[in-house]
Simulated assay, not measured.
Amino acid sequence: MIYLDYAATTPMSKEALTVYSKVAIDHYGNTSSLHDTGTEASQLLHLCKEKLASWLNGEKDGVHFTSGGTESNYVGVQSLLQGNKQKGNHIITTKLEHSSLLNLWKRLEKEGYHITYLPSDKQGLISIDTLEQAICEDTVLVAIQHVNHEIGTIQHIEKIGRLLRDKNVLFHCDCVQSFGKIRIDVKAANISSLSISSHKVYGPKGVGALYIHPSVSWSSLFHCQSTAQSLRPGTVNTPGIASFITAAERAIEQMDKERERYEQLFDYTKQAIRELDDFIQLEGHSTHHLPNIVGLTFANVQGQYVMLQCNRYGIAISTGSACQVGQQAPSSTLLSIGKTEEEAKRFVRISFGRDTTYHHIDEFVVTMKKLYHEFSCVK
C-alpha cells in the first residue's frame, strides 16, 4: 500500500517505539509518588516539558501533556474562558477550524457565548483587517488554526498575535498540523494557548500537549485536585510522553530539510496533474501553504469514489479530516472557501511524509488518469 495520508496520522518511528518500551520498563513510577521510582519518572517528565517549551520558545510551566490535539483544543479553550469570564462572552473564530472546535462553538453558543465566524478568501486565508473590525469590547478569545488540516493554508499567526496583544484579547492556536513542520514562537505570536498532537510527528497516538502561557489566567474544567497543576486529573502517561518528545525531537531537527523536500514533492505533483486541469483543481494558498498537504477537488466525481478507487489500486488517501469521515455534511473548510455543497463533496486530500517518493506520486497520478478517462467516456 502506498500511504499518502500522513496528515491523518503517521506511523510511530523506531526511536519512539524504543523509548516507549524503555520508559515503560525502567521508569514506570507514578510521577506524583514521593519515593525514588516516582521521583525518577517525575524528573523525566520535567525534562520532556523543558524540551517542548524550548521548541516553542515558551516556558516549562506552560506545558501540559494531554491525550491529543482534540483534548488540547477543548481543554485549552474552556480553561481560558473559565478563567476570564469577566472579560466578556464574544469569541472570534473561523469555519476552517478542526471539528473539535467547531463542535465546541455550538455548545458554547447554547451557554450564552456569541460566536463570530470570520470569512476567508478562496485560498483559505483570513484578513487581518476583517479580524480587527470584528473585535469588540466583549471579545474574550480569538481561536484561529495555524495550518488548515485539509488544504494546508498557513495563517499569519504572528500578525494576528500582535493585533490581539494590542487589543488585550486571548489567542488560542491549533498547531496540530504545523508543529514539527514550521517554526512556532509562542512569544512572537502572542499565543495564549496552543494545541499539538504526538501522532502527527511519528509519535504514539493518545498523547499530545497543550501550552498555556504562564502569565495568562485560566481555570481547570475539573473539580478535583490534579497531578498536573490542576489542569487535568489522572496519572501521567510518562512512556507515551517520552516517546512523543523523542519523535518530536527528530521532527524538529529535520524540519527545514523535510520542508524543502516536501516543496519539491508538491511542485512535482502540481506539474504532474497539470494535464488534468479540466478534471482536478488544486486547493489552498499559492504561497502561504504547507507543502506536505495537497487538497484537490474534481470536476465531476465525488471524493469518496476517488478515495475508494485509489484504495483499490493500493493507494491510501483521504476525503478530508479523519475526524469527519462518515459525516453527511460536507467539509466546513471547503464551504468556507466558497465551494458549493456539491463541489465540497468532490474533495480529496493527499499528504506526504518521510517515506513519500516521486514514484508514489507517479502511481497516484496514473490512477487519476484512469479516473479521468473513465469519466470522460461516461460524458
Rank of each mutant, 00 (worst) to 15 (best):
D174A: 11
K167P: 01
R183P: 07
S215D: 15
V176M: 02
V216D: 14
S197R: 07
K181E: 06
G161S: 11
G203E: 00
Q177S: 04
N168Q: 14
V207K: 00
I160G: 00
H213Y: 05
R165V: 06
K181N: 06
K205D: 01
S195F: 05
S178L: 01
K159N: 14
S197C: 14
G161L: 09
G180M: 02
V207E: 01
E158Y: 11
D185L: 07
F171W: 11
R162N: 15
Y202L: 06
Q177W: 08
K167L: 01
N168W: 02
F171P: 03
C173I: 09
I196V: 14
D166I: 03
S178N: 04
V176K: 02
L210C: 14
L210H: 14
Y211S: 15
Q177T: 12
H199T: 00
R165P: 06
I154H: 03
L164A: 03
Q177I: 12
C173R: 11
D166Y: 11
K167Y: 10
L164D: 02
K181V: 07
K181A: 10
G203D: 02
I191C: 08
I182M: 08
V186E: 01
Q177L: 11
V169H: 04
K167G: 08
I212C: 04
I182E: 09
R162Y: 12
F171M: 10
K200C: 02
R162F: 12
N168V: 11
L164F: 10
I212V: 13
Y202P: 04
